[in-house]
Amino acid sequence: MRLIAVGDNVVDYYEDREEMFPGGNAVNVAVFWKRYGVEEVSYIGIVGNDEEGDHIVNSIAHEQIDVSRVRRVFGPSGEAVVTLDERGDRIFVGSNKGGVQNQLKLNFTESELAFISTFSLLHTSVFSRLEKELPILKQYIDISFDFSTNYDEDYLKLVCPYIKYAIFSGGSLTEEECEALITRVHQLGTPNIIVTRGSEGSLFSDSQRVYRQGIIETEVVDTLGAGDTFVAIFLKEYVLSGNAKEAMEKGAAAAAETCQRFGAFGHGKKRGKRITIG
């Protein structure tokens, strides 16, 4: 099995620990794919030429993910400042809005599109600024797209016709609101929809029925990356087997394991100097 993640990357800087961890939705999904048994995983993204960028690329490469098509550019890498509440839930208190990723966009050559077409699935997100590339990418590969908490109608219309899997963070939504969102996204052309709901578990719709999965209780150290873990393992298992119930169960088990460590997938590192972000 070969899967590819394209787009956002970041370092999550934990103020209380004075430590940075690699992450970002696309990066997290790529790493969890590899850790949970996908034979070949590639990542394409834009990274700054700074200490943070070095740490992101080195950490991904350490996970045996192909980073040969990562773009290194002059400027700051993406950074989010994170703190944890008493339950281990992460709270974002600042960011540099993606760093250089906010100024540049990914473009794909014909040879790169041919390379992408050799994979079973491409995962990207709302933070990756690939909306205008989706009609092209759809011609080469199935796409999963993480909207995070963006439920804007115009944005849904822009993205939904071109993707096979839509993923939403629905922790702030009631179950009725989640079901209404699922109905609307199906109407816009997306056949498969995942909604993660934090402690309420998750929902998945395949256009025929809605499946529900609760969380697996565990000792929580840090919830950062748990949702991305669930999504990564669900997608991997569902693409392989088409068994939604089993895929959700395995995703929930993996998410519980992620909650037991700091950072989405570890690789914490002290850095040379602190950069203040508003």
Rank of each mutant, 00 (worst) to 15 (best):
I193D: 01
L181N: 01
I193P: 00
G227N: 07
L173A: 07
S169E: 08
G225I: 05
F168I: 04
D206K: 07
P161Y: 07
I163W: 05
E217L: 07
E219I: 12
H186P: 04
C178Q: 03
I194D: 00
I233L: 13
F204K: 04
R184H: 15
I233H: 05
E219P: 06
T218Y: 10
S205A: 12
L203Y: 04
G214E: 14
G227Y: 04
F168C: 02
T229A: 14
T174F: 14
C160M: 14
C160L: 15
K236P: 06
I194T: 01
Y162L: 12
E177I: 14
E217V: 09
V220G: 09
R197Y: 08
T229Q: 01
S199Q: 10
L235K: 00
S207C: 11
A232R: 04
E175C: 06
A180W: 09
E217N: 13
V220W: 14
R197D: 07
G171M: 03
E200I: 04
S199D: 11
G214P: 00
E200Q: 13
Y238E: 01
V231D: 01
T223Q: 03
E177G: 08
P161D: 09
S172C: 11
E179W: 06
T183S: 13
S199Y: 10
T174G: 12
L203E: 00
V220K: 15
